[in-house]
Computed example of a mutant assay.
Amino acid sequence: MSNDHPPGLDLERLRGHLDRERPGLVRGPLDAELIEGGRSNLTYRVTDGTSRWVVRRPPLGHVLATAHDMRREHRVISALHSTAVPVPEPLLLCEDETVIGSPFYVMEFVEGTPYRTTPQLSALGPERTRGVVLGLVDTLVDLHAVDPEAAGLGDFGRPEGFLDRQLRRWGKQLDASRNRELPGIDELHAALGRALPGSPSPTVVHGDYRLDNVLVDGDDRIRAILDWEMSTLGDPLTDLGLLVMYSRRVDVRDSPVPTTAGAPGHPEPAELIERYATGSGRDVSAVSWYEAFAWFKLAVILEGIHYRFTLGQTVGAGFDRIGDLVPVFIDNGLTTLQES
């Protein structure tokens, strides 16, 4: 850690605001480091030498207000904190942009590991790996068991027509980053639209639920679900479909997409689906559609990254290979949908 201000976080101004709003919380000079950056919301670890906290703010520069709405993230973890769903304790929301230049919120720092790669997860050994991944499913069941009305989240999203809107939204995202032929992607988009399933009762949906968005403690328990920026009220099976997709092995060397599916002991997708069905009591017979939609969504996201790379807007290791991944995701989506 260094005493310099990390980009986007003025520590004196943060300290002054915390002293006013939460007197006695901070007991010494603040020190901070940026732990996550990029196009997503920025995450900082902040300490006074005794206690640690996490600060979240939108990316630097102009952003879509809806995509990086601090109030939404703070609201959902505040609502879930008193439920069985493990989330960090929210401490403060600041919507006054004069403090650090943007809205931000502060939450407790939770110890734990986000497992991002197969080697990282493999180090646990097959038995522990299996337990961690099954725990991921059980925690998703807990999330989807929360009654949105009772949690004060009854107006957190618009569940009617959720899947149709999602499909249209990701189709528009695709159109915004088209600069090459992508055989099969329009066919996949159209086939998903023709086979749109009927949604079960709406729940709180995380929107990006996978192993590297949770913190796992030394006892292999999930201590906190992180990154709620995509959360809303909608079809719970979209979270399951994404989780199943991330549990498939993608045969691409040095894939820049985070996957832990190759770790020995990692349960097969069929077992994860069955465990979710048993735990939640939901009908999962249409899960192939949701998995195919997850492949489509990821293909669109990866194509967007590839598009920005071709324009010279994205630098760093691995970005040159992302374009080659897109056809793999399209093919997997088409195959999954045909199997359904």
Rank of each mutant, 00 (worst) to 15 (best):
Asp4Leu: 12
Pro6Lys: 01
Pro6Ala: 06
Pro7Lys: 10
Asp10Trp: 01
Glu12Tyr: 01
Pro23Met: 11
Glu33Cys: 14
Gly49Val: 02
Thr50Ile: 15
Ser51Trp: 04
Val54Ile: 15
Leu60His: 00
Thr66Cys: 14
Arg71Ala: 15
Arg72Cys: 09
Arg72Asp: 08
Glu73Leu: 13
Ser78Asn: 11
Ser78Val: 09
Thr83Tyr: 07
Pro86Asn: 10
Val87Pro: 10
Glu89Phe: 01
Glu89Gln: 13
Leu91Gly: 00
Asp96Ala: 10
Thr98Gln: 10
Ile100Arg: 01
Gly101Asp: 10
Ser102Trp: 00
Val106Cys: 08
Glu108Ile: 02
Pro114Thr: 07
Arg116Gln: 09
Thr117Arg: 15
Leu121Asp: 09
Leu121Trp: 07
Leu121Thr: 07
Ser122Glu: 14
Ser122Phe: 05
Ala123Trp: 04
Gly125Asn: 10
Arg128Glu: 13
Val132Gln: 04
Val133Arg: 03
Val133Pro: 09
Val137Arg: 05
Val137Thr: 12
Thr139Trp: 03
Leu140Gln: 02
Asp142Ala: 14
Val146Ile: 13
Pro148Leu: 08
Gly152Ala: 10
Leu153Ala: 13
Gly154Pro: 12
Arg165Met: 05
Leu167Met: 02
Arg169Leu: 14
Gln173Gly: 12
Asp175Tyr: 13
Asp175Ile: 12
Ala176Tyr: 12
Arg178Thr: 15
Arg178Glu: 09
Glu181Leu: 10
Gly184Arg: 00
Ala191Glu: 15
Leu192Ile: 07
Gly193Arg: 07
Ala195Asn: 13
Ser199Cys: 08
Val205Leu: 11
His206Val: 06
Asp208Met: 13
Asn213Pro: 12
Asp219Leu: 09
Ile222Phe: 08
Trp228Lys: 14
Ser231Pro: 11
Thr232Cys: 11
Pro236Thr: 06
Thr238Ala: 10
Leu243Arg: 01
Met245Glu: 12
Tyr246His: 10
Arg248Tyr: 04
Arg249Ile: 15
Val250His: 07
Asp254Leu: 12
Pro258Glu: 11
Pro258Tyr: 02
Ala261Arg: 05
Gly262Leu: 04
Glu268Asp: 12
Leu272Gly: 11
Val284Ala: 03
Val284Pro: 08
Ala286Trp: 01
Val287Ser: 04
Phe293Arg: 00
Phe293Ala: 04
Leu298Met: 14
Leu298Ser: 03
Val300Gln: 07
Ile301Asn: 11
Leu302Ile: 01
Gly304Trp: 04
Ile305Glu: 02
Tyr307Asn: 08
Thr310Trp: 03
Leu311Trp: 00
Gly312Phe: 08
Ala317Thr: 11
Asp320Phe: 02
Asp324Phe: 06
Asp324Met: 01
Pro327Ala: 02
Gln338Arg: 15
Glu339Leu: 09
Glu339Lys: 13
